[in-house]
Nucleic acid binder design. Structure first.
Length: 816
DNA sequence: GACCTGCTGCGGCTTG
């Protein structure tokens, strides 16, 4: 029987037939080609990538058995995943598949939580397939005995490449792949990705230049429907807010209508609050409701995951921590609370439900304030148009390159010219020039000009034979402790007195609590007993109330694509259920002011007792609006001295000048010119401070900050900030041209401020008409911005009172 | 009783 016939038989035994894209992938692999496969999750991409190596092995003559029981053999397949949980799952699946086809393969997993057996196997070279993460792969590269093990590697699969490609983890992966290509030139890398707006970039970042690689896709995307839970009384529905508990009754009815629900919120605090609210009205055994987010202890999370897999849970409230990972076929329904933020993100979440062949994906969206309805309508349109967001692969992140150089110096050493050529085969460092490369080498060898007197920064030595190596054992240990690009510091572990961890909260949050104070965390009411060594010891409390921690995480702006679509939806969509429900509110907007549209920039200036407020609605996403607000304030202040309060959301921004000003369309167009953008932004947005903040992560990746030692109390955030701030100042003073300072400034400009987005928005504003309206009171579009702005100045109580009063006033005035 | 913005991800430790 031919290998292909055997593989087909294996499919047939499961009631499947190979899909066209799977057969294509096998064919290209066997022809010696590389490629990128993009499909919705759960559509058989694992087998598309694994089938090639299987067929290849089946075609080989059988290994004579009986002599040596476990002869050393070369590794065939390296499988890289971004998640440990996926690594275990994949290891199981690959083992079973190989076994069922009669291939006596050893498949092992090499991740931080891998068993001792697997770690031994991975170092010992008696494996056929190795499943690992980018970090663990880098660690392998730091050991000199790894190279022989990879010498005959044939296939590399990078799973969930869309998750990795936009981050420094992706760059770390690119560098490792370049090394593996050098060791085994015959290797064929394959990437697996969800749908992306820029597949070509994804391919270029992953696959070597030269041979044109294959880009394959599953023929049919999984159909998906988006439904909105319309508020029963739109007239009474809040104009601002983010939590949405007013919809609790409706959500509860939907949760009870099916067997299992995944309820997504956008933040960890909201997950805790929704869990608490559902628990208060939960009619069943409390054990059938669970909570899942990134600050919970792994054991607590695994419990929820197991409950989903075994279908013993009715509902799990989760954040993005459940976006990715092991599939849960038993989930019947996905609910999204609040803004979807992006098309890719909502598709990913919706895909978690009814994850069974042939079934349509579905998501129920629950709005937390009125205008979110427009976001849902816009998202539905964007999904239909296939307008999925792009992810930009980082370019020239020299901190990652410096780390990689030390890793390779540890793992047997390198010759400078050869490594230079090697790293330039990656997408991230294709544009690396010789001078910069020399400075990176200089940095790892002597720390550069400012740090050369500190021995701990002299990590790599150029030996007499011209090879760069690490000789110092302390440097080696410290480096292996610090491998990776993810920085997460300053968290306080939450533990019961008798052991048993619940998770982690931020230092600043526990810092405000005194022993005896109560707070809600991990779905429980807790009392702080004492705080010691970055650990908060707690005990369970039965009754009462407590504050919910807030974590300062990412700020999740609406994707630019979606923000633009929201504007078009507001202007044109009169038929979707969401927009029909929103109509009364839009009528108020049109009566008080006017509706924005893609061709028209709407500006509103309002005088209230609390002063003048200027609202601008470019619909460019929150991050861009923050930059635009800073820019406009800076330029206005230059014309006439003034002080501004600012706030921004996904639809627009607000400036509240201390001295009232008069604005007309022409003045605004002048002020919103792209000319001189960089200079004005540098001063207006205080780029120096942003770069200083950005520097902490860079310093960690580049190996300038001492790693915290396992088993010891982690360093506090203050300590870390102090040492990275000190380094920043030392470099700025003694070595102002240092490559890591330049990187910090560039990242602050590109990632923090998103200067490209600002520039694009400004260019668009130049050709848009500008309408300056002077409504007599806050409009529905302006209200959330005003409410947000107030919150910065006032205590929560004052803020609530003011918001309520303002809302009542509006109701009276517009007869809502 | 109403009100709460701020995501995710990995790794090191060992020589009985």
């Amino acid at each position: 029987m031919t290998p292909l016939a055997r593989l087909r038989d294996w499919f047939a035994a499961r009631g499947w037939t190979p899909l066209p894209f799977q057969r294509q992938a096998w064919r290209h692999y066997l022809a010696g080609e590389s490629g990128l496969i993009h499909t919705p999750t759960g559509s058989g991409k694992t087998l598309a990538a694994f089938g090639g190596p299987l067929l290849e092995a089946l075609a080989e003559p059988p290994v004579p058995t009986g002599r040596k029981r476990n002869p050393p053999r070369p590794l065939r397949v390296l499988w890289i995943t971004p998640l440990r949980a996926l690594a275990s799952d994949t290891t199981r699946a690959l083992t079973d598949t190989a076994l069922a086809l009669g291939l006596p393969w050893t498949v092992a997993q090499r991740t931080g939580d891998a068993s001792a057996r697997d770690k031994r196997l991975a170092r010992g070279g008696k494996l056929d397939v190795l499943v690992t993460t980018p970090e663990s792969l880098s660690l392998l590269l730091s050991y000199p005995d790894t190279a022989p093990m990879f010498a005959a590697l044939r296939c590399i699969v990078v799973d969930e490449w869309h998750e990795l490609m936009g981050s420094k983890r992706g760059v770390q992966t690119q560098l490792a792949l370049a090394r593996l290509r050098r060791w085994s030139p015959q290797v064929r890398p394959w990437g697996l990705s969800a749908t992306l707006g820029n597949l070509d970039d994804a391919r270029r970042a992953l696959l070597p230049p030269g041979v044109p690689p294959q880009v394959l896709s599953a023929a049919r995307p999984r159909p998906m429907t988006l439904e909105t839970l319309l508020p029963p009384d739109i007239v009474r529905f809040p104009w601002s807010g983010h939590l949405g508990l007013s919809q609790l009754a409706g959500v509860m009815a939907r949760v009870m209508a099916v067997r299992t629900t995944l309820l997504f919120t956008n933040t960890r605090a909201h997950a805790e609050l929704w869990h608490q609210a559902l628990a208060a009205v939960w009619p069943e055994d409390a054990g059938t409701l669970a909570l899942h987010h990134g600050s919970l202890d792994p054991a607590v999370r695994q419990q929820a995951e197991a409950g989903l897999r075994e279908a013993t849970l009715r509902c799990v409230v989760a954040t993005s921590s459940l976006d990715l990972g092991v599939d849960f076929p038993s989930v019947d329904q996905v609910i999204q609370i609040g803004s979807p933020k992006g098309v890719a993100r909502l598709l990913q979440r919706a895909g978690r439900a009814r994850h069974r062949p042939g079934e349509t994906g579905h998501v129920l969206c629950v709005s937390t304030h009125a205008l979110e309805l427009a976001e849902y309508a816009a998202t539905r349109t964007a999904i239909a148009d296939g307008a999925v967001e792009v992810r930009h692969p980082p370019r020239l992140p020299l901190d990652v390159l410096a780390q990689h150089c030390v890793t390779i110096a540890l793992g047997g050493g390198f010759v400078a010219e050869a490594l230079f050529d090697e790293v330039r085969t990656t997408g991230a460092f294709a544009a690396l020039d010789a001078a910069t490369w020399q400075r990176v080498l200089d940095f790892v060898v002597r720390g550069g000009d400012a740090l050369e007197h500190y021995p701990e920064y002299r990590r790599v030595v150029r030996d007499d034979d011209g090879v760069y190596r690490v000789h110092d054992r302390t440097v080696a240990l410290r480096h292996r402790l610090a491998i990776g690009t993810i920085a997460s510091d300053g968290n306080v572990a939450v533990k019961f007195l008798r052991g048993g961890g619940l998770g982690a909260v931020e230092e600043a949050f526990v810092g405000r609590l005194r022993p005896g104070d109560r707070f809600r965390f991990a779905g429980r009411l807790l009392e702080l007993v004492r705080l010691q060594d970055m650990t908060a010891y707690v005990r369970l409390v039965k009754q009462g109330d407590g504050v919910v921690p807030r974590w300062m995480g990412g700020r999740m702006p609406l994707s630019t694509r979606l923000a633009g679509q929201v504007c078009a939806t507001l202007a044109n969509d009169r038929t979707s259920p969401e927009m029909r429900a929103l109509q009364p509110l839009l009528d108020v907007q049109a009566r008080l002011s006017r509706m924005p549209s893609p061709d028209l920039l709407l500006v509103e200036t309002v005088r209230r007792r609390d002063g003048q407020h200027v609202f601008v609605f470019p619909f460019a996403g929150r991050r861009t609006h923050e930059g635009l607000a800073a820019l406009l304030a800076w330029r206005l202040g230059r014309r006439a001295p003034n002080t501004f309060a600012m706030s921004a959301n996904d639809l627009g921004f607000m400036l509240s000048p201390q001295r009232p000003l008069a604005l007309d369309a022409d003045t605004l167009r002048d002020l919103l010119t792209p000319d001189g953008l960089l200079d004005d932004l540098t001063q207006g947005a205080n780029l120096g401070e942003l770069a200083r903040r950005q520097f902490r992560g860079i310093a960690r990746v580049a190996g300038l900050l001492p790693p915290s030692l396992p088993g010891r109390a982690p360093r506090s955030l203050r300590q870390l900030q102090a040492s990275s701030g000190l380094l920043f100042d030392v470099l700025a003073q003694h070595d102002p041209g240092h490559l890591l300072l330049a990187l910090a400034r560039r990242e602050a400009l590109e990632d923090d401020l998103q200067v490209a987005g600002i520039e694009e928005a400004l260019r668009r504003l130049q050709v848009q008409a500008i309408a300056v309206e002077q409504p007599e009171s806050l409009t529905p579009l302006a209200f959330p911005l005003w409410a947000d702005g107030m919150r910065g100045h006032l205590s929560t109580e004052d803020w609530q009172v003011r918001v309520r009063r303002a809302a009542e006033q509006l109701e009276r005035r517009h007869g809502r």
